[in-house]
Amino acid sequence: MRVDVYIPLILPLLLTAVASQVGLKVSPALAARVLTIAAVLAATASTWALLLLAATLVNEAPHVATEAGEDGRRLPDPVPVAIAVAAIMLLWLIGFRLVRALRAHYATRRVLERLCEGHPPDSELIVAASSTPRAFAIPGTPGRILVTAAMLGALEPAERRVLLAHERAHLAHRHSVLSTAVTLAAAANPVLAPVRTTVAFLVERWADEEAARRVGDRRTTARALARAALVAQRARPGCALSFSEHAVTRRIAALQTAPLPNLWSIGVAVLALGALPAFGALDATGDLLRLLGESLPG
């Protein structure tokens, strides 16, 4: 209990430290998947570890202490009270962050439903007659692709195919599920926020690679990204909001080199980084149950 319970709280730091490096070495499809799974495992384990720490406070409950005193038993004290109290406060914070993330998720869902209104349910492409150049995938069954008229007008025919293939890849590989999962993981454990950023970048890279494969041309794919980024920039000059770490430039650079391999050795190592905190948390759970058995008579 003394050591195990802290493992799930330390290891997510390691996952965060390696996340962006994994993205540079491994194909985006594999990297995005293993990082998301590891982040969810790590966040679940760290939250569970906090619950275990909070549960040790049961020894401080007056009736437990009194009964133990009457029976002449000595209560084990695995964790300092201050740490248990801190754990409870962190759990409140996590609860608040999870609720906020879920609210944002459902708010976005409602907006997306409105965007689809009035369009035939069996058509994939939804055009918005807007002069703001934008394009994104709308997850669902079936998923849809929303593109504004301004974005379509700015691209060459081959580049429009790239755009559609890119958004289709998001839908076909359910990238919204990965994105929601890693968002909730980062809400439960803020240390994992950089993993979330990396996964967001990797699903774009994944969709770029898929588009390049479908269209059969990496150069056209890179040009489509460049042109779309330039026209989007012109529509909102000086807008630093969506700057996001040179993401487009890095995606274009990646398309100008050969695709990265599926390095399973690295993939398994990342999964292990997610599984270790989970094992630590499980082990600590066993220890705590034993301690509680000693504390509570009957």
Partner: peptide, 12 residues
């Protein structure tokens, strides 16, 4: 609310 989605491109 759309910023949370997979956008085709981001800022420069």
């Amino acid at each position: 609310p759309i910023a949370a989605l997979q956008q085709f491109v981001t800022g420069l």
